[in-house]
Design a protein around this nucleic acid. Structure first.
Length: 222
DNA sequence: TAGGCCATCTGGTCCT
DNA sequence: AGGACCAGATGGCCTA
């Protein structure tokens, strides 16, 4: 519950920060990519077209050409507007992805890796964080059990991270591994199951060993 | 050189 | 209408 609240708060906070950042740095600060800027319309698009409107007589002589011209011009205007919107959308998307990457970097910083400067990929970061949180929660829960303490409600989280469909860690040979990731079977999520978990990725910090996180022997990093 | 990872662009969809 | 979000496409870089 508390965790959920924190998650929701974090999301809304991030959104607020993102909006504030947008307001502080209007997207005009970013120049469009070269590939697109090369296709930008001319800064002085056909300004002479409106300078000398034709008389009706003259107009009757060249109506089609003028119509073609004006439609051409409006067509240019439309494409110009479209390009402008596309560039703005590209800038927003770029910023959004940078924001997302910053959040991932922040997440990487609190995850233990070995060596310390080893960089997990995006998917590894997410999977590892998922499992790491679960492992920490289980550690606290088990410690509470050992000391006969009342379990904190916020850590009442019985299930290990789902090893499927694409887990970073999986229970490879545990007889109970088939159900260890299922939220439907919290009963199997006990210290026994923890005995079958261990990080195999060499970049993971040694602190994620059995002693520190109760992560057992044959957990594999997929 | 193939495969993995990443950044960026792009068009579509949904929401405000 | 404009912005956020998403997924697919593409190309660059790196490594085994």
């Amino acid at each position: 519950m508390v965790l959920m609240f924190i998650s929701v708060s974090s999301v809304s906070m991030v959104k607020r920060e993102y909006r504030e950042e947008e307001e502080m740095s209007p997207e005009s600060s970013l120049s469009p990519p070269c590939s697109l800027s090369s296709s930008q319309p001319s800064p002085h698009p056909s300004s002479s077209d409106d300078e000398h409107p034709l008389t009706p007589a003259e107009d009757s002589k060249k109506p089609k050409r003028n119509r073609a011209r004006s439609s051409n011009k409006s067509g240019e205007l439309v494409t110009k507007i479209k390009k402008s919107r596309r560039l703005k959308a590209n800038n927003r998307e770029r910023k959004r992805m940078h924001h997302l990457n910053s959040a991932l970097d922040a997440l990487r910083e609190v995850l233990p890796t070995f060596p310390e400067d080893a960089k997990l990929t995006k998917i590894e970061t997410l999977r590892f964080a998922h499992n790491y949180i679960w492992a920490l929660s289980e550690t606290l829960r088990l410690a509470d059990q050992l000391h006969g303490c009342t379990e904190p409600p916020m850590l009442h989280h019985d299930c290990p991270p789902s090893p499927s469909p694409s887990p970073s860690w999986s229970c490879s040979s545990s007889p109970s591994s088939a159900s260890c990731g299922s939220p439907d079977s919290p009963d199997t999520c006990t210290a026994d199951i923890l005995d079958y978990w261990q990080p195999a990725d060499p970049r993971l910090h040694p602190a994620l060993s059995q002693q520190h996180l109760l992560l057992p022997a044959n957990m594999t990093f997929v």
